[in-house]
Amino acid sequence: MEREYQIEGAEMTYRMPKEVDHHKAVILRDQMDRLIEAHQIRRLVLDFSETEFMDSSGIGVVIGRAKTMKFYGGTVEAVHLGERIQKICRASGLHRMITIKEEDGND
């Protein structure tokens, strides 16, 4: 089975699950924070290419990680967001808090 994350130096790319809700949020939060600390991550890339569903609990996870990274002087960005996930991010104002790179259609 493929791992959810890939680490290169101080950069971690984390593959977000198919559904990012409150049930998954607890697990995601703990795992990412543990990895960020253990590997001294300073650039966190959240890859949403497989994500089909996200609600406000998912937004909470992203904002929480943005705070964690800010604490360590690092950055967070979200990449490969499908149309639905973009809509959720816009509704929450998340696009004003972190860098979001939307799906470019060429992938």
Partner: peptide, 13 residues
């Protein structure tokens, strides 16, 4: 618990 307080706003949206 990283609750955003956006739940009702999302329901209404």
């Amino acid at each position: 618990q990283e609750r955003t307080g956006m739940g009702f706003a999302f329901m209404e949206a």
